[in-house]
């Protein structure tokens, strides 16, 4: 199983490199055939990595007997899985491959973190041995993945807009999605993320309130930051609907939201104490 994990990490590394190459390899047209090959390798490499990672997660689950999301190892591995899932869905639906250049390296970093922690697996505390944990964590990690995809589209938007304003026309420009597409997809991913996050938080709240009968703890660092993240995204959607805040401003707010997600997901565990901290 450890070997399987190592192979997965390496496949993700290779896929990330090809994903990044796809956008960065020379702008000259000689590279066109090469580039389409790279695009294929990047996409199918990612799919292979995804399959391996799925297998790993299933094996992990059956060996430890609980859902793999309570520790650095399993949580980040699952996060990488969610990330890849959303990437594959987006590419399948839209053919906008450029997004992989941002999303897959993020997944790789996540899986690398997971790998480096894989030695010290803690046992699960009694109060977490419940199926409530499954939807709570799944929904929230999928929401994060959606937000990161939105962030990717935000960056793509800014790059394409810069090219159009500079009136610089190169092959590179042709690889970027149109402004409308980046904007629209970024928005859709944001909405998806907000829905998933809301549901995940509701499940978590119901679980603590009614099942465990623990008082709602506003001061829990992770809960607080999640609410902040949620507010950032909801405000963004609201402003867009009311005053047409799209394009560059939407892209910037997608980036701000991404930072908030990073703080919530990783920052809390590193610097603050919370009931959600991985141990």
């Amino acid at each position: 199983m450890h070997f399987l994990f190592l192979v997965t990490v390496l496949v993700y590394l290779a896929a990330s490199i090809f994903q990044a190459l796809y956008l960065t390899i020379g702008e000259r047209s000689e590279t066109q055939t090469l580039r389409s090959r790279i695009a294929l390798i990047a996409f199918w490499g990612t799919c292979v990595g995804f399959a391996l990672l799925s297998l790993f997660i299933i094996l992990w689950w059956s060996r430890h007997g609980h859902f793999p999301m309570t520790h650095w190892t399993d949580s980040t591995a699952f996060f990488a899985w969610a990330n890849t899932l959303i990437y594959i869905i987006v590419v399948r639906l839209t053919q906008l491959r450029a997004i992989g250049s941002f999303v897959i390296p993020v997944a790789f970093v996540a899986i690398l973190i997971s790998y480096s922690f894989s030695g010290n697996e803690a046992t699960l505390p009694e109060n977490l041995k419940t199926y409530w944990l499954v939807p709570h964590v799944t929904l929230i990690l999928l929401a994060y993945a959606a937000f990161i995809t939105a962030f990717g589209f935000g960056v793509l938007y800014l790059m394409a807009e810069k090219k159009i304003r500079q009136k610089a026309h190169t092959l590179f420009h042709n690889l970027l999605p149109s402004l409308g597409a980046s904007d629209e997809l970024g928005y859709r991913c944001t909405i998806l993320g907000v829905i998933l996050l809301t549901l995940g938080v509701i499940v978590g709240a119901l679980w603590t309130q009614y099942i465990q009968e623990i008082a709602w703890r506003w001061l829990d660092a992770k809960v607080f930051l999640t609410v902040v993240t949620w507010v950032i995204y909801v405000v963004q959607i609201g402003i867009r609907q009311l005053w047409g805040w799209r394009g560059r401003k939407a892209a910037y707010s997608e980036i701000v939201g991404f930072v908030a997600v990073l703080c919530t997901y990783i920052g809390v565990n590193l610097f603050l104490d919370s009931a959600h901290t991985f141990r």
Partner: peptide, 24 residues
């Protein structure tokens, strides 16, 4: 295999191509 057939070579087509870069 080459890009000799890509890229607009008239003003009006260049405008269409740009529009496609902006609008979804």
């Amino acid at each position: 295999e080459t890009t000799i057939a890509s890229g607009a070579v008239s003003i009006s087509y260049a405008a269409v191509e740009l529009a496609k870069k902006i609008f979804n």
